[in-house]
Design a protein around this nucleic acid. Structure first.
Lengths: 237, 237
DNA sequence: TCAAAAAGATGACAGATGTCACTTATTTAG
DNA sequence: CTAAATAAGTGACATCTGTCATCTTTTTGA
């Protein structure tokens, strides 16, 4: 976790247009630029631990980060995967509480750390930004409600099919024979995403493969039949 | 759903001290008082439906409201129970989206409806209020993360035990033989809260009764052994 | 007050899913 | 490059939980 010599300014950051900073005026951002730290991380490194206090927020410039919680049985539940342009840790900061989850690098990432004060300053300086952050959190809440409902009311098979579709949406790249999910996740991580046992994921994935819904390309999954997965993921197609 | 003649002002409202309006200056509240509608509702009445657009927020003065989502299998997942002092529907409003869930009266309720404009006005007039709302939403997100993790990683028995403890915390009144959960929920509603089938709740509740963890007083549940339930609700006690 | 509806309860049963144990393949590190 | 560690895969098996069917009890409403 070393600080890079080149500190790309937020104003010039390429991933800014995907982020909550998209519409923020340069004059508000320069304070952030001056105070943030640009750091690169390797797979497996941890940005923050559940239960610790937030000192600022993280902004992902490149790469993939998993936000997860460890259940009382020791298994890891992945709450969501964050990617380029996503902010991390602001809910704990704004909620004035400890992190409710941990964040771990899944794929080689470049990440900026924005200290608490700088982030709060933009928030109070720029009303539109404040509003956008609030909006984002509210949207997240709606998503969590759906996830909770799915978790209790759907079978593992349905949830796995749904998870694959979502991954496809977020990390899919077109190939000749369907979309390739361009992100390497272990079976254990997929299990954490779905909320099930690793063995169950392995079994269901090979079932999906047998049914020609997906196939494997090394460690990556290629989705051959989106419609089929969609049909599986819900009681109605 | 009739408008009451007596429109209690927010400034004088007794449940205000439990609510997000607690610290708001009277001068900011009077605009709300003038524009809100005080309405009383009967059990079973619906405040809003999932999928419709929010026109304002609801503030519960008295009673209990369930916030729920209908899963694709037709079953109802109860996201949370709201009570005196709780606001409803502001996440959809601030998230600029349709309601992600429905709200239904569970126990005879008195509820104020605050029109969109009035609510947004207080929000922009009172910075501390804005901050408090943001904080509340962030806290809710943390809670949802825990609920999701519990839903995927815990057994139904554990979740039911946990649900009973939570109900006890929120609606418990001291009795001679343990705490009585002073709210009437059908077995189906408890099932919706836990995220399981009604029959399973019935069976587990009678198992809990047999094990002298709880007993019934009419439609209400008396928790006899909190420690025992806590032990059941988690792998570590 | 009485019939209909809703809620509660119980049994039988099947199937999905978790656990455990073990093997094989792949990756990592010394 | 080889050994160790990690990940993937497979089988056996138990059991929790959902579904369906049926019955009883309670509540509701006309």
């Amino acid at each position: 976790m070393k600080t890079q010599p080149k500190n790309v300014s937020c104003e010039l950051c390429i991933s800014r247009k995907f982020s909550l900073f998209a519409g923020v005026a340069d004059q508000h951002l320069c304070h952030v630029s001056e105070n943030k730290n640009f750091i690169s991380h390797k797979k497996g490194q941890i940005l923050f631990y559940e239960g610790t206090k937030p000192l600022g927020v993280f902004c992902i410039n490149e790469g993939v980060v998993k936000v997860s919680k460890t259940a009382s049985n020791g298994k890891e539940q992945i709450i969501r995967l964050a990617k380029k342009g996503d902010f991390l840790g602001y809910t704990a900061l704004l909620g004035e509480e400890s992190y409710s989850s941990s964040a771990t690098i899944v794929e080689e990432a470049k990440i900026c750390f924005i200290p608490r004060e700088s982030f709060l300053k933009v928030l109070s300086d720029d009303n539109a930004f404040q509003q956008k952050v609030t909006k984002a959190i509210c949207n997240d809440l709606g998503i969590m409600e759906s996830k909770l409902t799915d978790a209790t009311q759907k079978s593992i098979r349905e949830r796995l099919a749904f998870t694959l579709l979502k991954l496809c949406e977020n990390y899919g790249i077109e190939g000749q024979e369907g979309q390739k999910i361009d992100i390497v996740l272990t079976r254990e991580e997929i299990a954490g995403l779905v909320g099930t046992a690793t063995e169950t994921v392995i079994r269901l994935l090979s079932e999906f493969k047998k049914d020609e819904l997906i196939e494997f390309d090394g460690k990556k999954i290629i989705v051959l039949d989106k419609k089929g997965l969609a049909r599986l993921s819900d009681f109605y197609g």
